[in-house]
Amino acid sequence: MSVVRDLIRFMGGTAILTKQVISEGLRPPLYLRLITEQIQSIGLMSLPLVLITALSTGMVMALQFGLGLEKFGGKMYVPKIVSLSIIRELGPVFTSLMMAARVGAGITSELGSMKVTQQIDAIRALGTSPIKKIVIPRVIACIICVPLLAAIANLVGIGGGLLVGWSELNLTPAFYWQKVLETITLVDYMSGMGKTFFFALFIALPACYFGLNVSGGTRGVGVATTTSVVTASILILVGDYFLTKAFWIIEQWL
């Protein structure tokens, strides 16, 4: 019962938070300096993690498919399979999962600590809004950074595949690149990138919600941080299915 109650509370709380973010976000002032700081902290600082994840994913994919398909004489399909998988799915999803782990946890623990030490109350007591000062800059930074990082991850992932194709599968870089360009369409690219805007919200909003609703002192901060990462990961993975389905339907119309 408590799981259902918590789920209802989470859904209601996140809906209210989303409404506050929209209504306060549309009213000036917009704290550009805070948004820039968050873009640096959320985006730039996550770049190494995203690069490593994307590179390894591309390399492993190329190796697995290359060695598997070699038996049937199909290793020339490796560039096609790897690039499509990365562009449509793995680049956006793995980037978002990494961001959920690094950024989601960071946001929840920071906001939770601020709540426990009454800094959130101090923001209110000084006549300012925690939504404007804390939540909106983080949400906007995630909406900007997650798609950008996913775009970089796509390139690096394909690059990783190319490296393995060249070094392990005897596919020349020119051949590999040509096959990638022949395979990927703008629709494939947009299908993957379109999802990242939703994934950004799946990371930022639960992270802020759990951080702002921490109770039970420092232990509560730890619990909220874990819950935030788990929630964001589940939302990304489950949401990915429905978003993929939705984008397929849109593609049929186009």
Partner: peptide, 11 residues
């Protein structure tokens, strides 16, 4: 103005 017990300074 509200003076918090532990200061509640922005760390």
């Amino acid at each position: 103005a509200y003076v918090f017990q532990n200061g509640a300074l922005f760390d």
